[in-house]
């Protein structure tokens, strides 16, 4: 099992945030000199209004990875976790909007996806380091944007306003009015968080149950193959494209 050093529940972080909320600042808007985002006619007003991507220090990760020959039976994650309470707080709020509870399963934070995120962004490998460069400022950006819109951090924003932010990001990422919009850091952050939250969620036992995955159980005797129901389904669909079940 993953070693998680910081265990903060959603309730803990909300409690903590009640104390922290006086620290309010209004984020600046994207300034024309921002060289990461070219302000142009390609970017509609709605996205230009988003708060500036924060220029914050991303901690150096100097810790070793698990090495070439780790214990495969009893895995351990050797690197320290980087996210602080404030970042975890924003993370929890975001992943629960991305992957909320529904009739098939709980919300992301209830199965610990925030701890997976923390482990991921703290890892010393190239791909995770790249994600760290996006996610750590991204969590700050969420709070900045929330403060601009509602004078509180993202987690404390009323849900309707949280959703308004997410809609802007989702529109910018998924509906991609232009490549320039999709490439904006907040949109990239949104896309990355969605992929990782889902990956983190559906690799848990709850997630696998939700997805109705069947496997990883020893079968005595021959492999039974597809069920009659699965074969019938396939056969019907093959017929629709003029093919026969072999």
């Amino acid at each position: 099992m993953t070693v998680v050093e910081t265990k903060i529940t959603r309730r803990d972080t909300l409690k903590w945030m009640a104390i922290a909320t006086p620290l309010i600042m209004i984020g600046a808007c994207y300034a024309p000199e921002d060289d990461e985002i070219k302000i142009s006619s390609e970017i509609p007003e709605k996205y230009r209004k988003l708060v500036k991507w924060p220029d914050i220090n991303i901690p150096d990760v100097t810790h070793e990875g698990y090495g070439k020959d780790p214990d495969l039976i009893l895995p351990k994650t050797p690197w320290p976790l980087l996210l602080n309470a404030m970042q975890l707080n924003a993370c929890v709020a975001l992943i629960d909007l991305l992957v909320p509870a529904d009739d098939k399963g709980p919300a992301a934070s209830e199965v610990g996806v925030q701890h997976f995120m923390n482990e991921w962004v703290s890892a010393p490998y190239p791909s995770q380091s790249e994600d760290r460069e996006l996610i750590i400022p991204g969590l700050q950006w969420l709070d900045d944007e929330a403060k601009k819109r509602g004078n509180v951090v993202f987690a404390s924003l009323p849900e309707v306003e949280q959703i308004a932010i997410l809609d802007d990001l989702s529109d910018g990422f998924d509906k991609a009015p232009s490549v320039a919009v999709r490439q904006m850091k907040p949109m990239q952050f949104f896309g990355k968080m969605r992929r990782l939250s889902l990956g983190g969620y559906y690799t848990t036992a709850h997630g696998m149950e939700d997805i109705a995955y069947i496997g990883n159980e020893a079968i005595a005797g021959d492999y039974p193959g597809p069920s009659d129901e699965a074969l019938k389904h396939l056969s019907e669909h093959l017929a629709k494209v003029g093919l026969k079940l072999p």
Binding site: L98, K104, K175, R194, R195, L196, S197, L198, G199, I211
Partner: peptide, 30 residues
């Protein structure tokens, strides 16, 4: 198919269906 258990890379699947977030993307994954 379902040869291997869900892995951390499956989060792109809702992008087949316009992306979005919330209950919609859970349904997409299923």
């Amino acid at each position: 198919g379902w040869v291997t258990a869900p892995d951390v890379g499956l989060g792109w699947l809702p992008e087949l269906n316009g992306g979005g977030y919330g209950k919609k993307i859970k349904a997409d994954i299923r």
